[in-house]
Simulated scan of single mutants.
Amino acid sequence: MKKSLLILGLAVLVLTGACQQFKTDEGGLQYKIAKDNGQPKAQSGDLLSVEMTVTTDRDSVLSSTYKIGLPQIINIAPDTIPGLYAGDYNSMFKMLGEGDSAVFKLDLDTMAAKTMQPKPEFADKFVTFNVKVNKHFKKGELTDSALYAEVNTYFDGEIEKLKLAEESKIDNYIKKNNLEPTKTASGLQYIITEEGTGEKPAAGDTVQVNYTGTLISSGEVFDTSIKEVAEKSNIYNAMRPYEPAKFAIGVRQVIPGWDEGLLLMAKGSKAKLIVPSELGYGERGDGRGVIPPFAPLIFDVELVDVLKSKPAEQDSTAN
């Protein structure tokens, strides 16, 4: 399965590395140093803030910090920890310092033999790491609490950057796609792409909704109720049903952007909802690493059905 990550920084890194030959280190680790910034390399106890994309030799993406929009913190472990070996994941990052970038190919056969664990089934021989180091936190004489205070301050700054960039991400998306959405007082923006002929739901009604959710930052689909879309987006999960979501509207069972947007639609309508983080998953994200903090989202939704709530039965004892 193939995914294209249109990330300029990653593209530059790959092109730079392509001009070199891979070198082989202990344990079968293959590497290309795309940029050596001349700074001290990471040592045991240090931490690195990195941008990183991890792919397999089957051309599938396992993870990418570019998708989330936040760097990953790597803890350089001491060599004395059981299970570590020359040429492993920990060894890769000891080759890097602040401002460095490199491509590593981790040998899975060696990993399985050295760790006495089964070889992963998601790749044939190698997993490739494209890495760029943003910041090097040196342990030195610092206490653990002092070191992690530095990291927390740094990470708070990265999250603040996401917050400040949110409005421009939404504006750029609208401009790029030549959209003319209607904006509500809450900040929700929406476009009715197909007008339905049924009645609109009221708060408390049960609705059935087909949907596809996309991250504005990367354009990647993170969730959908439609099987074909899930398969095309490489997020298909055979353990879940693909059918319209069913829930009560206007009673906080879903994110505020859905509660507001779906109440504007008639049964049978289709719409595009542009949901700012305040009406989505807020400053914390979804907590699973799929939706980052301050992430504006796009939902293409179809209001399939509206099941009107039944009025409360009158109290038989009332006079």
Results as ranks from 00 to 15, higher is better:
residue 223 D to L: 08
residue 233 S to L: 15
residue 192 I to K: 08
residue 149 A to S: 04
residue 155 F to G: 10
residue 215 L to W: 01
residue 147 L to C: 02
residue 228 E to N: 04
residue 194 E to T: 14
residue 229 V to N: 11
residue 193 T to P: 10
residue 239 M to D: 14
residue 168 S to N: 13
residue 204 G to E: 00
residue 182 T to Q: 05
residue 208 Q to T: 02
residue 246 K to N: 04
residue 218 S to K: 12
residue 252 R to E: 07
residue 166 E to C: 07
residue 159 I to T: 08
residue 157 G to F: 15
residue 239 M to K: 11
residue 187 G to K: 12
residue 176 K to V: 10
residue 253 Q to F: 11
residue 162 L to H: 00
residue 186 S to K: 10
residue 203 A to L: 01
residue 198 G to T: 01
residue 202 A to Y: 12
residue 163 K to E: 01
residue 236 Y to E: 10
residue 237 N to M: 13
residue 175 K to Y: 04
residue 248 A to N: 01
residue 161 K to M: 05
residue 251 V to P: 00
residue 205 D to A: 05
residue 221 V to L: 14
residue 146 A to M: 09
residue 227 K to Y: 01
residue 156 D to S: 14
residue 185 A to I: 09
residue 171 D to F: 09
residue 181 P to Q: 07
residue 179 L to V: 05
residue 253 Q to D: 10
residue 241 P to Y: 06
residue 172 N to A: 07
residue 213 G to N: 14
residue 242 Y to H: 06
residue 240 R to K: 11
residue 175 K to D: 07
residue 250 G to F: 06
residue 189 Q to A: 05
residue 195 E to F: 04
residue 157 G to V: 15
residue 159 I to K: 14
residue 237 N to H: 10
residue 168 S to A: 14
residue 211 Y to G: 03
residue 245 A to N: 14
residue 194 E to V: 06
residue 207 V to E: 01
residue 240 R to I: 09
residue 220 E to S: 06
residue 198 G to H: 01
residue 183 K to H: 14
residue 235 I to A: 12
residue 249 I to W: 05
residue 221 V to M: 14
residue 157 G to M: 13
residue 232 K to A: 14
residue 183 K to R: 15
residue 222 F to R: 06
residue 179 L to I: 08
residue 184 T to E: 04
residue 215 L to P: 00
residue 162 L to G: 01
residue 204 G to T: 00
residue 163 K to M: 05
residue 247 F to P: 07
residue 192 I to T: 11
residue 185 A to E: 08
residue 231 E to N: 15
residue 205 D to Y: 03
residue 196 G to E: 05
residue 235 I to R: 14
residue 227 K to A: 02
residue 214 T to D: 12
residue 171 D to H: 10
residue 204 G to Y: 00
residue 224 T to D: 12
residue 251 V to L: 02
residue 174 I to L: 02
residue 231 E to H: 14
residue 167 E to V: 04
residue 158 E to Q: 10
residue 210 N to V: 01
residue 198 G to C: 03
residue 148 Y to R: 09
residue 249 I to D: 04
